[in-house]
């Protein structure tokens, strides 16, 4: 009986396999192949095996770009945790009615293009923009802050774009938290902080850890935020790849950079999973 059942299940999953093969594995292999080819003189590639593309990555200018990307991703993730965790945790404690409303407020921005929302930030950040006029009319600052096209602007944009994912991940974990466990901890002598630390945090850790993955991985590649809010001052791996592909037309090098980014992210995730000691990050890693 059992093998039969298994076969049936596999058959039902067949479309998924085909989809994955065609749209995920195919492009990946194509990218991998490209990364070992040689750039043509004018346009496109020549199928001539080379390792030069990978060797190029180790030039200091590109290495530092990778390093900058990791630093920005890490900083954004830390800020997203600090904002998103409490938000998601307390959202789970709201009444059903307010949970729904809060969820709605979080979802509405997703109905518009993320690009448009970033242009919104430009209006806020630019010299003499919304932020400046508010701060100046309150006499907190005397002149324009010139925040647009700076590192902080990029960080704000990243955090803004990614914080909902953290909130959703933490919320789904915190909603399952049985509050009587916190009461039991308090009853057994724990201060509110100790009860949170030993019970609530431990039991919502899977959500937090998934949220970190959901934040860190995309922030390694979110090039358009750095482009739009950072001008050309903040160069990340993502922007570098885009530049090599679309402006320099160096497809093999762009592919090699992409493969390197993929490997780096996978490695970081692997290390992270080891360090977190959690086997199941809610099915993410």
């Amino acid at each position: 009986m059992k093998p039969k059942k298994k076969n049936k299940g596999a058959l039902a999953a067949l479309p998924l396999y085909i989809f994955t093969l065609v749209f995920v594995l195919g492009p990946l292999l194509y990218m991998l192949a490209l990364s070992f080819m040689t750039r043509a003189e004018t346009w496109g590639v020549v199928p001539e095996f080379t390792l030069e593309n990978y060797a190029n990555i180790f030039q200091p200018v590109y290495l530092s770009t990778f390093w900058e990307s990791i630093k920005l991703a890490a900083l954004s993730t830390v800020l997203v945790v600090l904002i998103g965790y409490p938000f998601g945790y307390f959202m789970a404690k709201l009444t059903a009615k307010w949970k729904k409303r809060t969820m709605m407020l979080l979802m509405i921005p997703f109905w518009t293009s993320s690009l448009l929302r970033l242009y919104g930030w430009i209006i806020i950040f630019r010299a003499g923009g919304v932020l400046d006029s508010v701060l100046m009319s309150l006499h907190i600052t005397s002149g324009p802050l010139k925040l647009l096209y700076t590192y902080p602007a990029v960080v704000v944009g990243m955090v803004y774009a990614l914080v909902p994912f953290m909130i959703f991940a933490v919320y789904s974990s915190a909603e399952k938290l049985d509050f009587s466990l916190v009461e039991a901890a308090r009853d057994l002598g724990a201060t509110p902080f100790k009860a949170f630390w030993t019970v609530s945090l431990k039991l919502t850790l899977p959500g937090l850890l998934s949220g970190v993955v959901l934040t860190f991985v995309p922030s390694m590649g979110l090039f358009f935020i750095a482009d739009i809010l950072g001008g050309n001052k903040v160069v990340l791996v993502g922007s570098l790849i885009q530049e090599q592909l679309l402006k320099a037309h160096n497809w093999p090098f762009a592919a090699a950079l992409s493969v390197a980014l993929l490997l780096l992210t996978t490695l970081l995730l692997f290390l992270y999973r080891k360090a977190a000691g959690v086997k199941d990050l809610e099915g993410l890693v």
Partner: peptide, 14 residues
């Protein structure tokens, strides 16, 4: 609750 010399056995064990 943590300042009281009282402990509880909860209904759902907790």
């Amino acid at each position: 609750p943590n300042r009281r010399d009282v402990n509880t056995v909860f209904q759902n064990y907790a």
